[in-house]
Design a protein around this nucleic acid. Structure first.
Lengths: 208, 208
DNA sequence: CAGGTTTGCGTACACCGTAAGCTTACGACG
DNA sequence: CGTCGTAAGCTTACGGTGTACGCAAACCTG
């Protein structure tokens, strides 16, 4: 298999002009622009320029801008998933995952409004969270209850990040410059997370 | 005071052409379009047409589109604030307010992504929530703790609504058509809310 | 070398937010 | 009544956006 052939999208076509672009490269470049210049700067022309390509060339690999943004979302979300210890109790795993998720969000502040507007594909998300759900099962917690707890925490984390990074095109990052503000948000985050997790702990213990 | 004079913006100018528009009318019309046709349809030209006015005329009453959206946000947020009983315990008041807030969000599904991207002005929000914060004070809970609880719940409610209504320009409202989905979201909402509120109850009780 | 196929490019269009200057409609004053 | 000042609304225009459509280029296979 030649280098050229490997670069090609899998299977199918035997001939044709070799691709300089792949969907993955497009998404990766989109994330770079997003991080460096914000959501508003992520235009098709700008993205094309960053890849040394005309704007319209992108449409060979991505159906439209919105689909591209959706790809960016699932890409970033999968960044947030962590390894769980096989014996880790669910409340600990859930807390650690919430912290990791928040870490990813704060590492890509300009992407937070995106995550809010383009929700992670449910099926894709559940696959990524399968390990976590297993920890609930180990404690005899029903699937429905486990899902409720996980989703509630996920929703809280995203909402909290939204509040922290504020609007995308604003004076936004008071957090980045003001350490006192960062401490405020950290404390708030932990308090709300602890409250929610302990609340679910009580609920699940009481139901049994 | 003539009808014409009353219609004029307060104070100041003595002469001039009578205004057919006011900032309030503009914001109200914006909400109408938002509810009826979604966020993408809310363009300056479209809004002007709805008011029988050219797009540029709007700029006499609103500095720019983003500021208009911010006005819409605070308008909708103030819709969600409810009356609290003077003796109502904080956890009850907080729960009721969360339910009312969610009700407003679901009544304006297209506005939810807006609320997510254009956070409510902090000072304005605190004024609207002063009554609620008083209920915490009555229980001897410190201002910092009260704020943490209120904000955590607010963030959860918004995040949950985002998950329910999904993307603005999508097949979005599975909820509106599928009652089973609505029940799912209702149950999830209540479980997460109850967990968080009871978690804070324990924390505040333990701290004392 | 010719044919087929895929990628990337150039052009064009409709629509967006909004800057600048003009016209219109009123109250106040001579 | 005529004139003026003033504020509201309108017209035009510009640079930017996403993307439909057809063409040119670059490779593999015979």
């Amino acid at each position: 298999m030649t280098q050229t052939a490997r670069r090609r999208s899998q299977g199918g076509g035997r001939g044709g002009r070799p691709a300089t672009l792949t969907p993955e490269r497009v998404v990766a470049a989109a994330v770079e622009i997003l991080d460096a210049e914000g959501l508003e700067a992520l235009t098709m022309r700008r993205l094309g320029a960053h890849l040394g390509v005309a704007a319209m060339s992108l449409y060979r690999h991505v159906p439209n801008r919105d689909a591209l943004l959706a790809e960016v979302v699932t890409h970033l979300f999968s960044e947030a998933v962590i390894e769980l210890g096989p014996e880790e109790p669910w409340h600990e795993a859930l807390t650690r995952l919430a912290v990791a998720y928040r870490g990813t969000l704060l590492a890509h502040p300009h992407a937070v409004p995106l995550l809010a507007t383009h929700p992670v594909d449910t099926d894709r998300g559940l696959v990524l969270l399968a390990g976590l759900l297993g920890r609930f099962e180990d404690s005899g917690i029903g699937e429905q209850d486990a899902l409720t707890a996980v989703q509630s925490v996920a929703v809280y984390v995203l909402g909290h990040a939204l509040a922290q990074v504020g609007t995308p095109s604003g004076t936004a990052s008071t957090t980045a410059t003001d350490p006192a503000a960062a401490v405020f948000y950290d404390r708030w985050f932990e308090a709300g997370l602890a409250a929610m997790v302990s609340g679910f702990e009580r609920r699940f213990a009481g139901d049994r």
